[in-house]
C-alpha cells in the first residue's frame, strides 16, 4: 500500500529541485574526471614492506633471508628506474655501481631450471609410457607465462614485486615467482624448492586432462607408429553402433582394434570425428593416461618412489 502511494512521487534526496541539480552535476563531474589512476600499494599510508616480506616467508613456511627475498622480488625494471632517476639527478655513471642490490634475472633462471627439471622428472615418473614430446608440451604449459602469472598473482606476489608499474605485468609476475623458487634453493636446499614446485606448479594440473594439453594433430598416424614400434599390427577401426543417424543428435560409436584386440572406442557426431576420437582414446590407453589412471599424488611423490635427483 505504501509502495502504491509513493509510486511516481519524488521522494528522498531528490525531493528539492536544487538538490537534484546538485547531485546530477556531481555525477557528471565524476564521469568527466575519469577513473582513478592506478597507484602503488606502497603509496598508501599503511604499507610496511619489511613486514610484508616477513609475512611472505611465514605464509609459505620457508625460512628465507629477508634480504635474499627482497632480491628475488626486485624486477629489473625497478633497477632501471632507479638508475634513470639518479642520472636525471646528475649522478655520474661510476657512482651508480654503489647500488646495494641487483635484479632477480639470475635467480629466476635458477628457479626455472629447478622447476623444469623437477616437473619433467615427476611427469616422467608418474606417466612412464607418455611420450617425451607430450611431457615437454606439458612442462612448457606449466611453465608458460599465463600459467605462472596466474599462480603468482594468486599467491599474493602482485603487491610484493618491486617494479616500475603499479600492477606488474605477467612477465614480472613470472620472473618473481621463479626467483622465489631460486631463493628457496639458495637459502635451504634443492629438495625444499622441488616440494614448493610440486605444491604450487604441479597442482595446476588438477582438473585438467594432460591428453588435451598435448594436442595430437594426427592421432591415427601416431597410433599406427606406436603400434609398429611395439611390433603389433596396424589399427583397424570398426563402427560398433550408430543411432539417430538422420536426426540432429546423431551418434556413432567407433572402436579401434589391432589384430582383433580391442584398443579403445569413442562416440562422435559423425563417423570421421568418432574415428579420430577413438584413435585418441586408444592412444591414451596405450600411454596409460586414461581416466582410470590415478591422479598425481602431489605431496607423496617422493614417498611413492620418485628418485631424488643428484
Amino acid at each position: 500500500m505504501v509502495r502504491l502511494l509513493r509510486y511516481g512521487t519524488i521522494f528522498g534526496p531528490l525531493k528539492d529541485r536544487w538538490r537534484y541539480l546538485y547531485k546530477t552535476d556531481l555525477y557528471k563531474r565524476r564521469i568527466e574526471a575519469g577513473p582513478e589512476p592506478e597507484r602503488f600499494r606502497s603509496a598508501l599510508i599503511n604499507w610496511n614492506y619489511d613486514a610484508e616480506l616477513h609475512a611472505c616467508t611465514h605464509r609459505f613456511g620457508e625460512k628465507i633471508n629477508i634480504e635474499s627475498l627482497r632480491h628475488a622480488l626486485t624486477d629489473s625494471s625497478f633497477l632501471n628506474q632507479i638508475v634513470k632517476q639518479r642520472t636525471e639527478a646528475g649522478l655520474a655513471a661510476n657512482d651508480q655501481t654503489t647500488l646495494s642490490f641487483t635484479h632477480n634475472e639470475e635467480l629466476a633462471k635458477r628457479g626455472e631450471q629447478i622447476a623444469e627439471d623437477f616437473l619433467r622428472r615427476a611427469l616422467q615418473y608418474w606417466y612412464p609410457k607418455f611420450p617425451q614430446e607430450g611431457i615437454d608440451t606439458i612442462t612448457k604449459f606449466l611453465l608458460s607465462e599465463p600459467t605462472i602469472a596466474d599462480i603468482s598473482s594468486g599467491l599474493g606476489f602482485k603487491t610484493l614485486i618491486r617494479c616500475d608499474v603499479p600492477s606488474p605485468h605477467s612477465t614480472m609476475l613470472k620472473k618473481a615467482f621463479l626467483a622465489f623458487i631460486g631463493a628457496i634453493d639458495e637459502n635451504n636446499d634443492r629438495h625444499r624448492a622441488e616440494l614448493f614446485v610440486a605444491d604450487f606448479i604441479l597442482t595446476h594440473l588438477v582438473g585438467k586432462d594432460i591428453n588435451e594439453i598435448w594436442h595430437i594433430k594426427n592421432p591415427m598416424g601416431l597410433l599406427t607408429k606406436v603400434l609398429e614400434e611395439n611390433g603389433r599390427q596396424a589399427p583397424e577401426s570398426r563402427l560398433i553402433w550408430a543411432t539417430g543417424v538422420s536426426s540432429v543428435l546423431s551418434t556413432y560409436v567407433v572402436g579401434i582394434y589391432s589384430n582383433k584386440e580391442y584398443l579403445g572406442k569413442s562416440a562422435g557426431a559423425t563417423i570421421s570425428i568418432a574415428e579420430e576420437m577413438a584413435a585418441r582414446d586408444a592412444l591414451r590407453r596405450l600411454f596409460e593416461t586414461d581416466e582410470q589412471r590415478a591422479p598425481i599424488p602431489f605431496d607423496k611423490l617422493y614417498k611413492k618412489g620418485l628418485l631424488i635427483d643428484k
Binding site: 543411432t243 536426426s247 543428435l249 551418434t251 560409436v253 562416440a267 562422435g268 557426431a269 568418432a274
Partner: peptide, 9 residues
Amino acid sequence: AKQLATFSR
C-alpha cells in the same frame, strides 16, 4: 564425446 555418448537419444 562422453557427453554425446551419455545424452544421445
